[in-house]
Design a protein around this nucleic acid. Sequence first.
DNA 1: TAGTGGTCTAGACCACTAG
DNA 2: TAGTGGTCTAGACCACTAC
Lengths: 264, 264
Amino acid sequence: MSNRIRGVANPQAQAEVPGAPETAPVTAPLASRPLYLQARDLLLRRIVDGTWKPGGYLPSEPQLALDLGVSIGTIRKAMEDLVGQGLLERQHGRGTQVVPHSSDRSRFRFLRFVHGDGRPFRPVALVLSAGTARADAQDRAALGLGAGAKVMVLLRTRSEDGVPLIYERIALPAEPFAALKPEPGAEMLEEIYVLYQARCGQTVARARDTIATDRASPAMADALGCPPGAPLLLVRRVAVALTGDPIEYRQSWTAALHYRSDLD
Amino acid sequence: MSNRIRGVANPQAQAEVPGAPETAPVTAPLASRPLYLQARDLLLRRIVDGTWKPGGYLPSEPQLALDLGVSIGTIRKAMEDLVGQGLLERQHGRGTQVVPHSSDRSRFRFLRFVHGDGRPFRPVALVLSAGTARADAQDRAALGLGAGAKVMVLLRTRSEDGVPLIYERIALPAEPFAALKPEPGAEMLEEIYVLYQARCGQTVARARDTIATDRASPAMADALGCPPGAPLLLVRRVAVALTGDPIEYRQSWTAALHYRSDLD
DNA sequence: TAGTGGTCTAGACCACTAG
DNA sequence: TAGTGGTCTAGACCACTAC
């Protein structure tokens, strides 16, 4: 048995020695990476490139095993890894699905805001303004952009029962999110990560949050109905895509809400 | 093959029908729980009850498979689950170890404080006071205690380069932590979870953090060198043991530090 | 060299979903 | 009923650690 998945790993080696017998590759850097990791990466690549879309089903295990030329057990091990990352979801008797971002699912994959008494916060978002601008230093650092790069900037509030509780600024790299087309004044009932995925093909895989205190700017005070300079909780989030590239830098300010990690 | 691990799962069924042939149990509630889950629970129980101590090694896979009367694959699956929870650590060629709480490991299993510029915070803790008291309402709610229950309360600061940056109150259920014996004025170089484990046999498995803003009380202002009433970041943590019981309620106040979730 | 965990396979049988 | 994933086994071979 060859030491790599057919036509998948080390394609350059294949290209360098076309038709060569299956001997040790000339350069053998990753040639012996475990098959299940190669399989996992291949599955991931097909998810990223859209071969299998969010909400869609993968081929069955026996089929994938045939396709990749490995045993079912190896396929299963590759899948388990992606299931653990929250990318795939297996349903007994039905199949294996690429997990779509749904508001419900997002609620449990990331830290989230709650009321002071622990009640969940169920917001409706209202877009205050949207447009592209030159990325500022913080945006560039968070998103790994060069000087002069453009970002789409959204300002919005998130309200419950008509009461705005969060003031939010979201910066996104301009091109991948050109199709987002947020409309000022529009209400967003869905979790915004659902829109990233549906409109822009961008899937948020993980996020890093940094929490600090801040003071209300006039704009925040106006939006949140608190005095300027009032102490606020500030949550900064950098979200990364399946590829590991940062795709969202978000700052959320709130006066009344708490932020929670659910049983880490 | 019997449908349960010998002498482990459903011992009451065994007791009710001693010497009975291996037929369906009279009451078959959990009789068909997968073997690997039964094996996982057994391993967990032996970790909790101290059969295998933190830092110690488990028997080898073939040995455990023999002991439990299951195949190695089933043992591996049980272990993988516990490895995923951070309870076990496998070392190729050496064995499988019960993970001891070390300061280094803790740093990556929980949310943590960082400096505003992202630098890690490496504190030394100083105990201000320690003693037992009647649990207040918040303590009881967090720790699941009844009215009149006693808690050990620690007040301490956490400093870097001699500068106190965190003021902290820790409430612990009195009896399990009687052996902690914190000494006011003592410096704690180790992560306190190491002490819980070493002195009291209590292992913190998971924690839930809730972050809010607060105002400095006179005591906090005094300890942190900020004006009374200054806005602070307040992190409340409820930590639970391997058994799932809450064993620590901690409140941490800071003026300068940020709090961070590292990638999810 | 002996013993450990790591990878990979092949196949039996079960449980769930859908038509 | 056909097809899917879930459990469980048995065994081969490899790679790492220790002595």
